[in-house]
């Protein structure tokens, strides 16, 4: 009888061990090969598309005209406060603006489908130091379409789009790009 009880205990223990190992493998193994990464994708062709002259109104009611940024290096970040990786990036855009603003770097944030009140609260809480504009089809179209967040464009002093970063931003790489554009000889 004791032998039977011991056997049952051991079978249960072995089953629990097997289930545990299986669960561990299932939990920690990648769900599929492509799921391993969501690295930033940089579009192969940025084609130096010129930024059209457009006028927008930011969340504080001020006009934001793309023509006003002529001669500046401009980062345009499409984001949303509801998008966690986008919201996480905002302090880094603030820091870039602080660091390079006096050398000619400007930033504009285009917010996609945020609740206006939540957006204003977010910007106020984070002390966003650049204009934030509610995005629409016109703004997305000006940049050749935006189909995912975050997406950041780098516009040179010549008013052309030089870079497009899609997905979570690699700020080390973006900063190098910004510095290169700020220090590039001007025509």
């Amino acid at each position: 009888m004791r032998s039977m009880a011991r056997r049952i205990i051991l079978v249960i223990a072995a089953a629990a061990l097997a289930i545990g190992v299986y669960a561990g493998l299932e939990r920690f193994a990648p769900r599929n090969p492509a799921m391993e990464t969501s690295l930033p994708a940089i579009a192969a062709s940025t084609n130096l598309r010129p930024l059209p002259h457009l006028s927008f109104t930011d969340i504080n009611g001020s006009a934001v005209r793309t023509a006003d940024y002529k001669g500046k290096v401009l980062l345009v970040n499409f984001w949303a406060a509801w998008c966690v990786p986008c919201a996480d990036e905002v302090p880094q855009f603030i820091a870039l603006k602080k660091k390079y603003g006096n050398q000619g770097l400007q930033v504009i944030g285009f917010s996609v489908e945020d609740d206006p009140r939540e957006l204003r609260d977010f910007c106020h809480r984070h002390e966003v130091n650049y204009p934030v504009v509610p995005s629409d089809l016109r703004s997305a179209d000006a940049f050749g379409g935006v189909l995912g967040l975050p997406t950041t464009f780098v516009i040179g002093r010549d008013g052309r789009i030089h870079g497009r970063h899609e997905g979570t931003t690699d700020f080390a790489s973006l900063e190098k790009e910004v510095v290169a554009m700020l220090t590039a000889p001007q025509d």
């Binding site: 032998s3 011991r6 056997r7 205990i9 051991l10 072995a14 061990l17 545990g20 939990r27 920690f28």
Partner: peptide, 27 residues
Amino acid sequence: LGSVRRGPAAVTMVAAAVFTAAIMIRA
């Protein structure tokens, strides 16, 4: 399994299984 007569072996195995299962449940 039934021929494992020593109590400590069974206890160790049960403890290992419970430990593993607990880690996985936590994960």
